[in-house]
Simulated assay, not measured.
Amino acid sequence: MEPIDTDLEYTTSGSRELNFRSRFNWLYIIPTLGLIWLAYIIAAVVFQWPVSGIVDPLMVFMLVVFFAFVILLFWAMAPKENR
């Protein structure tokens, strides 16, 4: 006997519809890092923490994040194969 069609689950094997703006969601990490830095500076002012030891490593980190932002921006705006 053949199985009844209602017992089988069919799945689509075709490509799913992609949201072209989904690549830009990775760029939300940049303002998040900025808000974390701003919260740290405000906390340093309120609680009188020394920030001189963190400034040099943070400037290097900010340069790396800037170049990562540029790379992510070019990646997010790259032409898609469906266009």
Rank of each mutant, 00 (worst) to 15 (best):
S15E: 11
N19W: 03
D56A: 13
L73C: 09
F69P: 00
A39P: 01
P79C: 01
D56S: 08
V70R: 02
R23F: 01
E81W: 11
I29P: 00
R16K: 11
A43M: 10
A43W: 03
M1K: 08
F61W: 03
S52R: 09
P57W: 09
D56E: 12
T11M: 05
I4E: 11
W75P: 01
F61V: 01
G14C: 07
A44K: 02
R21K: 11
V60H: 02
M77C: 13
F67M: 05
E17Y: 07
L8G: 04
L38A: 13
R16M: 07
T11D: 08
E17F: 06
P57K: 05
V65D: 03
W26P: 00
W26L: 07
A39V: 12
N19Q: 04
F74T: 07
L73I: 04
E17C: 05
V46R: 09
V65Q: 07
F74N: 06
A76V: 02
T12N: 14
F74S: 04
A76H: 03
V51W: 04
W37E: 05
T6N: 06
I41P: 00
Q48R: 13
N25L: 12
F24C: 04
F24M: 05
T11C: 03
D5G: 12
W49P: 00
V46Y: 08
R23K: 10
P57S: 06
V64C: 13
I71C: 03
F20A: 06
M1W: 12
M62T: 14
Q48I: 08
L18V: 11
P50I: 00
I4D: 14
R16Q: 10
I42P: 00
F20M: 04
Q48V: 12
F61E: 01
A78E: 10
W37T: 12
V65A: 15
V45C: 05
L38R: 02
F24E: 02
T32H: 05
P31Y: 03
A68I: 09
L18H: 11
P50K: 09
L27A: 08
D56P: 07
E17W: 10
V46G: 00
V45S: 06
L73A: 11
L33N: 06
P3L: 13
V65K: 02
N25H: 11
V65T: 13
L33K: 01
W75G: 07
V60D: 01
I30C: 02
L18I: 08
G53I: 12
I42M: 02
M77P: 00
V55Q: 11
I71G: 09
L27N: 08
F67L: 15
G53V: 03
V64I: 15
F24N: 06
A44T: 04
